[in-house]
Simulated scan of single mutants.
Amino acid sequence: MTEVLLCVGNSMMGDDGAGPLLAERCHSAPQGAWQVIDGGSAPENDIVAIRELRPDRLMIVDATDMGLNPGEIRIIDPDDIAEMFMMTTHNMPLNYLVEQLKPDVGEVIFVGIQPDIVGFYYPMTEAVKQAVETVYQRLGDWRDNGGFAAL
């Protein structure tokens, strides 16, 4: 099974750096067989690379304003991304990315981490750092949405 982990966010914007922090953590000590891509703030630039991999499972991890407490983690149905009002610091909406990739991937899992502070040059909050570590720890034996609740 080919599994791709696409980590999204801007590490210069406080809690929006959750995705890049996860990518960094996975590169230094891989969990499972995930092929990790740090999509940064322009994950659409990785569409071709992901298509070429033709993954059975694509997991997208991003800081997402869901109206929850900082650091809370939820699984979001990729089909609901467009209808939801979600904070994004990216060049293109993530629903565009998902739509472009659907024909070439099996399962798409979207993992949202609730940020607290998103602003240039702010440090990442402890709650979001802990959430990244929680996602990281569950990657090695991922099943049943990692044990996270759906939004």
Rank of each mutant, 00 (worst) to 15 (best):
A127F: 08
I76K: 02
I73S: 03
N69Y: 11
M59F: 02
P55V: 00
G14A: 08
E83C: 09
Y121M: 15
M92P: 08
D104I: 03
K129Y: 09
M12R: 10
L58I: 04
I81N: 00
V105R: 03
R54F: 11
K102C: 05
I109Q: 03
P93T: 05
F85G: 12
K102L: 13
E126G: 12
A127M: 12
T64E: 12
S11H: 15
G67Y: 04
P93K: 01
A63F: 02
T89A: 12
A29D: 15
D16F: 04
G67M: 08
E107R: 11
P103S: 07
R74C: 09
P20W: 02
S28Y: 12
E107C: 13
V128R: 03
D15C: 05
G40A: 10
I47K: 00
Q130I: 02
P70C: 04
G39F: 09
D80G: 07
F120E: 12
I50T: 02
K129F: 08
L22G: 02
N95T: 12
D80R: 10
Q35D: 07
D62Q: 06
P103N: 06
P103H: 04
A131F: 04
P103M: 01
K102S: 13
A29G: 12
T134D: 10
V118D: 03
G32F: 04
Q35N: 11
D79Q: 14
S41E: 13
Q130P: 01
G67R: 03
L21D: 05
K102A: 13
P123Y: 10
